[in-house]
Amino acid sequence: MTAPSQRPHARSRNPAAHRSERVGWLRAAVLGANDGIVSVAGLVVGVAASGADAAAVLTSGIAGTVAGAMSMAAGEYVSVRSQADTERADIAVERRELAEDPHSELQELALIYVQRGLSPELAQEVARQLTAHDALGSHARDELGITDTLRARPVQAALASACAFVCGAALPIAAVLLAPPGQVQAVAIPATLVALSISGALAAWTGGAPIVRGALRVAFWGALAMAAATAVGRLFGVQV
Rank of each mutant, 00 (worst) to 15 (best):
V176G: 00
I189F: 00
A188N: 03
A174E: 05
P181V: 10
G182L: 09
V184P: 12
I198E: 01
P180V: 10
S199W: 02
G207Q: 10
L178M: 04
I198K: 02
P180Y: 01
L177K: 03
I189Y: 00
L196Y: 04
A188W: 01
L193V: 04
T206R: 13
I189Q: 05
Q183F: 09
T192I: 15
A174Q: 02
I173E: 10
L196D: 00
L177V: 07
T192L: 09
A191N: 07
S199N: 12
A204H: 04
L193E: 01
P180A: 06
Q183M: 07
P190Y: 00
G182K: 00
A203T: 07
A204F: 10
A175T: 09
L193H: 05
G182Y: 04
A186I: 08
G200P: 12
S199M: 07
V187P: 05
A179D: 06
G200C: 06
W205T: 08
G207F: 08
L178A: 07
V187N: 13
A195E: 08
P180H: 09
G207T: 11
S197Q: 09
A186N: 02
A195T: 15
G200W: 02
G182F: 03
Q183G: 14
S197L: 12
L193Y: 11
V194R: 10
G200R: 11
G207E: 08
P190N: 08
A201F: 13
T192Q: 13
G182T: 04
L178Q: 13
L178Y: 03
I189K: 00
A174Y: 14
G182S: 11
L202I: 12
S197T: 13
P190R: 08
A191T: 15
V184S: 03
G182H: 06
A191M: 15
L193G: 11
L193S: 11
Q183D: 10
L196T: 00
V194G: 14
W205I: 06
S197K: 15
A204L: 02
A188V: 06
A175P: 04
P181I: 04
G182N: 06
L193M: 15
A175L: 03
I198W: 14
